[in-house]
Design a protein around this nucleic acid. Structure first.
Lengths: 351, 351
DNA sequence: TTGTATGCGTTATCAC
DNA sequence: GTGATAACGCATACAA
């Protein structure tokens, strides 16, 4: 007995429960405002008729859809997908549905998705990519005064948008401090892409760490790169080809770190005996890699949850000014870091 | 000059373009049916007024929302997130938006999300978890006659739902064939979770492979497990603790394979010298692992795209019967498999 | 507390 | 081709 697609409307429910249509609406929207008896009759009638609220109609009438747009540069990337998971959990708790948009790092595509705010009357948006879509030809349409927007991880320059993330500079500093504490003096840094905000924050932390601990800071110590294994390998190769290779590397994320380790291994080096590597993010596979990665853990799921919670408040009260939230990061020491074979002031003897 | 939220409606556009409301609607919906001159006037007026179509109103009237629900057991898992990426790409091409639901493997949650088909008048649904939500107390509501539904990867038993995936049995067979070809005779299989359909298909392929190649098939050769690194480790430990450990293992997915390798390494074994391991899925990190994983590549992105394309056809023509689609998989031989140290039937000479 | 009446912005059904 | 007009299903101002 295939149940038919519920075509019953509030009118039907009202008829069956012998109340007015308005009362049915109220019974569902504001449970307290309808008397006990009527509520029971209405609920029973709705059940019998297999009634389902038509959200489209509600959205049209109320001018808000219960939809939240989430803009992600790359869903396939575990870093983002776990963030999304946190967002999803909180959204569900708030009764909001998630409209997903993979921007592939393309601003034009991001703009397309951002338009859902208008066309679908989405209630808000979460940005995971550090850029405001469509700034160029669409001006201030995304200012939080118009639309509730929250950014994750990356501070968006020039936009008054609340953010939840961690202190990347401090984390970078701590990564270097860990290495320096192990005795390393020649520590390189493989950076993320140049147009990324996080890249600069982490690099800044690196610089401060190197300075504070009296480590070397030579011209090639800061290697440009990208958030990928391939880029990590390439940068590590350059570092190793240099006249005085580092004994340790701080990578701007775990994929870079893995790339660096692959390259080191390919050259017969042992990690961490010959080279220590610190990553960033603590993605799933960091723990299972060989060697297990020493890295900075970001509470990704929690970041997603908090961002969604903030957005929720912003939606219910658009005038509420949200302060940025910096969550706790954590240096997780595993097997990819160790004291240098020989302190680097004196020449390193290699077999 | 912050552009105001577009509050202009078709009525405004009609007024400004000096045409009727109906004509404006037609100009956008069926571009061919309105004369050249009027179309131009309408487009111009819409631009001037910064007009945006209100999709909620359209959905209410047309009884369809342009929304597709995607049910995923775990967005954080790279296997699924890349599938999602494929789905997203195709959906964008079709002008559909994706409503995402992470079921966390929970049927109750899945049912909740499936209700979006009713409440939001979603046009269809894609299932990534091998179960039809809400079967228990909601009967045949999800039959494709009522709602366009497509499943990915897992055939859903008892439901007449089109599927796109690969031939898991044949792939399992091929994995064993590869191992047997290398000279292995004692090949174990670490399975996925017992309630998963893929688990049985791959295990069946394993059995047939073992039989066809005259390999051993001892009682503990098939280890129950789950799709996780931890489960892979545990199962490998049992295998290694047995009286006559295998020289090779076919793992039901890459995470299991990684777990198996970790355990083997922890016991001082070398992979692939002492133990060969074949994975399944070819996730991102399979290539970068040490050793790089020999595994079965599933065209995940393409699977997502195809599923969404099929769903699109199903949406435009609900009576169209979609045939299952089996895409090409591929055994990717990398560094985690090698001939056994000593062949179990005949000795293999190794340098 | 409950009922009546109106409108949200579109598409569809008529006519012309 | 184009225009008037009636739904679509619900929320809410107002009246009772």
């Amino acid at each position: 007995m295939p149940t038919r697609r519920s075509t019953a409307t509030m009118k039907d429910v009202a008829l069956k429960a012998r109340v007015s249509l308005a009362t049915v609406s109220r019974a569902f929207a504001a449970p307290g405002s309808v008397s006990e008896t009527l509520t029971q009759r209405i609920v029973a009638a709705a059940r019998d008729l297999n009634y389902t609220l038509n959200v489209n109609a509600r959205s049209l009438r109320s001018q808000s859809s219960g939809l939240v747009v989430v803009l992600i540069p790359d869903i396939g990337n575990p870093f983002f997908s776990v963030l999304l998971q946190g967002i999803e959990e909180q959204a569900r708790a708030l009764g909001l549905a998630i409209l997903i948009g993979d921007t592939h790092g393309d601003r034009e595509l991001a703009a397309t998705y951002a338009r859902l705010l208008d066309t679908r009357r989405a209630d808000g948006m979460i940005l995971l990519n550090g850029t405001v879509p469509n700034r160029a030809h669409d001006g201030a349409r995304l200012s939080p005064q118009r639309y509730p927007v929250v950014a994750i991880s990356e501070r968006i320059p020039g936009a008054d948008i609340a953010m939840v993330g961690i202190n990347n500079r401090a984390a970078g500093f701590e990564a270097v401090a860990h290495l320096a504490g192990l005795g390393h003096r020649r520590i390189a840094h493989i950076m993320g892409p140049a147009d990324n905000i996080l890249t600069h924050e982490r690099a800044q932390g690196y610089r401060e760490g190197v300075l504070a601990h009296g480590c070397d800071l030579w011209p090639e110590a800061l290697q440009p790169g990208a958030f990928s294994i391939r880029a990590g390998r390439a940068a590590m190769a350059k570092l190793l080809d240099g006249p005085a290779p580092p004994t340790a590397v701080f990578a701007a994320n775990d994929e870079i770190a893995i790339g660096a380790i692959i390259e080191a291994k390919a050259r017969g080096l042992h990690v961490p005996r010959d080279l220590s590597v610190v990553g960033f993010d603590d993605i799933e596979y960091a723990e299972s890699y060989d060697p297990a990665l020493t890295t900075i853990n970001q509470p990704r799921r929690e970041m997603g949850r908090r961002a969604m919670a903030m957005l929720g408040e912003l939606i219910t009260d658009p005038d509420h000014r949200q302060a940025d939230v910096n969550l706790e990061y954590q240096l997780v020491v595993r097997a990819s870091t160790a004291p240098p074979r020989v302190a680097s002031r004196k020449p390193v003897s290699r077999t």
